[in-house]
Amino acid sequence: MPDSAEAADIPQAVLAAPAALTARGLAKQFRGFRAVDGVDLSVAEGSVHALVGPNGAGKTTLFNLLSGFIAPSAGQILLGDRDITGLAPEQIARLGVARSFQITNLFPMLTAREHVELALAGRAGQGFMFWRSDRLLIEHADRAEELLASVGLEHAATVPADTLPYGQKRALELALALALDPKVLLLDEPTAGMGAEDVDRTVELIGRVRAGRTVVLVEHNMNVVASLADRVTVLQLGQVLIEGEYAEVRDDPQVVAAYLGEPDAAH
């Protein structure tokens, strides 16, 4: 867990680091509408990289492109040196890119622990075992409970995910992504709809799990961006408006006009 002094050093270290995830000229066109329009993005290994921008800027589309859920109309995506353009979501997940969803996206019939067990079983290559009892998955119970505890869900292991309050569903999303032990973590608005206390916990958690990982974050809450992100990319109308550290980006007149012009959003 990096303390604050180390955290302040990260940007310098990060600038020198090779790119974990790169987008080149990435574009997605929906019936003539360019949701993502030629985005170049380079996410340094080990950094926390935030994508911000007003609604409709193309952040979630960009996420769907990076995680393979939609195929780009043009451009290229690299994971390290490897071209992952056009790979299926499950292939990208298996290469070490885990994502969470903006709209809570869980399995209504499973308990919180079963969710995490399912993710762990997939990594362990047990998913196709149709001849074994599903009691096999109990072997992941300890690790699952550990992961649940790390997101503050230790009390909810046997609760059907359907009945969890909203903030805890978001936390379970995060636990699921972490269960894949990804190299790159794509978090789509991890604190959306959370109360202040849950937001603080989530920020603290992301600060903890970023060690040894690269995190790409779509986030509207600028306090979260300020406290977590090494780099910030501002998107507008599917294009990169500006990229830099939070402080530079925040003060950029273009950004102020496009997005942070709403004083409430800036702080």
Binding site: E90, A93, F101, L176
Partner: peptide
């Protein structure tokens, strides 16, 4: 059952 209830989530977990 996971695929039945939420195929895209199952894919995000790496299940083909």
């Amino acid at each position: 059952v996971a695929i039945r209830d939420n195929p895209s989530r199952a894919r995000a977990l790496g299940y083909p």
